[in-house]
Nucleic acid binder design. Sequence first.
DNA 1: GTATTATCTAAGTCT
DNA 2: TAGATAATAC
Length: 777
Amino acid sequence: MSLLEQLNKVQQEAVKQTEGPSMIIAGAGSGKTRVLTYKIAYLIEKGVDPFQIMALTFTNKAAREMKARIETIVGSTEARNVWMGTFHSIFARILRMEAEKLGFPSNFTIYDTDDSKSIIKKILKEQQLDVKLYKPNQVLSRISSAKNNLISHINYNNNPELTQTDKESGKGKIGLIYTIYQERLRKASAMDFDDLLFNTNVLLRDFPDVLIKYQRRFRYFLVDEYQDTNYSQYLIVKRLAAQTENLTVVGDDAQSIYAFRGANIQNILNMNKDYPDLKTFKLEQNYRSTQNIVGVANAIIKNNKKQINKTIWTENDKGDKLRLISTLSDNEEGIRVARTIFAIKNEEHVKDSDFAVLYRTNAQSRAIEEGLRKMNIPYKIYGGTSFYGRKEIKDLLAYFRLVVNTDDDEALLRVINYPKRGIGNTTIEKLRVEANKLNISLWKLIESIESSKIVPKSTAVRIMEFVNMILSFKIDLKTKNAYELADHITKNSGIYRHLTNSKTEDEGVMRFENMEELLAGIKEFSEMESDEEGASSIRTLDEFMLDIALFTDADDKNKDISDSVTLMTIHASKGLEFPYVFIVGLEENLFPSLLSLNSRTELEEERRLFYVALTRGEKKVFLSYSESRYKWGKLQFSEPSRFLNELDPKFIDDQTSDMLLSSETNMNIKGPKKKLESSSSVKIINKPKAKSKEIPLPIKAKNLKKMDEIKSQNQISSNDQSNSIMVGMEVFHDRFGRGKVLTIEGEGQNRKASVFFNNSGTKILILRFAKLRILKQ
DNA sequence: GTATTATCTAAGTCT
DNA sequence: TAGATAATAC
């Protein structure tokens, strides 16, 4: 079978081991995804019904990619029937089908972290607890880890160990908060992320018939990134697979980086205890990276004590040594990264999308972004405030949520007075107190607000208008398609008018466009054919809302298409690969994080994180650190990361800037080291001074000053002809030779031309750097 | 009830 | 620095 021929020996054996429990320990870049997809394809070709296969991945993106790959092997009709997705999305789907058994409606809302946090804050207020002591994030993570270990609020309060710990830290009320929190979720017909897994366990534990149903339905289970599963996920898999034990888990203990979220590495280490006849396969050959990269990564991970013994090796080229970039400030770090990318692009003729910049924290993206913008290099950021995290998007989605599930208190509170309709804080507070007293959702209270005497009559009228509006939307839920209804809601709720009015300023324009983008997305969804069996012919808004809370930025399909540099956290980069990788911010207290230095386990997780980052690289890896960095608006000095000391010098090229620049750009950025150092050190010292000078200036003058700064920094070479180049001219480029200008874009610094060169095809050039000579006007 | 201003405090990673 | 919340004026 040709399928197997594309795999190495161990990979083949892993694929052919279809029956019974098996574990694949897959080193970084060893073709893990390949094995997983081929195994699924192999099962299907062997005659297994795709409906009987469940494949669990870590991200939606991974699921989508895997599905696409399987499609190319077995065809789309077969591939589409495999149940493939994240734990959260797959089990949300099952929970919706079985919801009433647990006392939930099938259209329950999934609360995201913001919703959860806002509930916690309200509870703290009601209970008059100190927000500084009970930090919402901490409370939430305590609750979350309880849930991930399947400790219900009842068990929590009955667990002396847990309650004792809370008391000792002065937070004895966490158990109570947990209880109230769960009540609120229940009242709102909502589940948070952890509940999706927790309640799946409850379902499979308390309803044997349901368990049997799914055990019969699914005969083959495959779990990707098994090292990052938590107890809750582990138990779901164990329960479902108990019947056939046709379970394949794939993972790499060296890449376990989600312990903070409850991931338990024991799940992988103890596999053979749960399954005595477990077959284990080790994939140790790396197909991704150069020998140098593999060598560095191996040396780094050796510093960790706990790990499964394995040796990653590669037949790939030796490759270049890893390069170290050292800068004086975070801004300079951004510029240096950008310049290096620019130089490599020119030198090696590679795409923007061949580059990734990886960092430990999202906050680091800004300096990098600035650098890239200055060099006109397109980039896309994954994570951070995602599209769905934007205020205007959340507001609009809140309307949709409320229409789907009127008990969704968080959604209601978001929109009851947005846009303003005269229902202010005092009223809302009254309603909340009353609803809590009656133990009902806000909607149930306001539905019959007229007959109660909670608020003055004029306010009650306004509330009724709101209620009727939502009800009028709800009528159309099953008759209109998602887009028609979404559009209708947007226009009739006042949101459309509100955003149109705010369009006068730059930020307003963006919000308006975001709204349009969301609607466009819903339109696309409405026109898509449903792949559910027996689904009705129209795709409705409640279908669209099903797992919208589970979508993240990384799932944005549009991002995959554009040719641009990728910026993301190392966590988000897991499973991905790029020819050129920059790992930035390698400084003590940043990477490893200050918060990880208390324990060996946490430090080892940071080191695994570094390992993951290194092993993303295919051809070249750059490591950068800065001697100072802005944190909380203040300049902080930093020392190089301890991880840099762990690097084996024989893999490292420690000549910083000069080596990085190609001859071509070198001409433009002549003597960069000296210039940069002096200019940036001046910048650091001057920063506070400049600031105090700036304060009295009116805003406009301040902006002008900033523009000047940017301009002067960007004045790398004053190329005289660059502005006189026009479409149609014949030009000469030092490297590409003779060419013809096809189009011109941008102004001044940003002026770009696409030029067709006789020898090397069409190139987009930034005129400021390209040094084109005009041959013929 | 709403708009504007002042003050506080937070940034660790994600479904 | 920036977003969230509290305080203040209208």
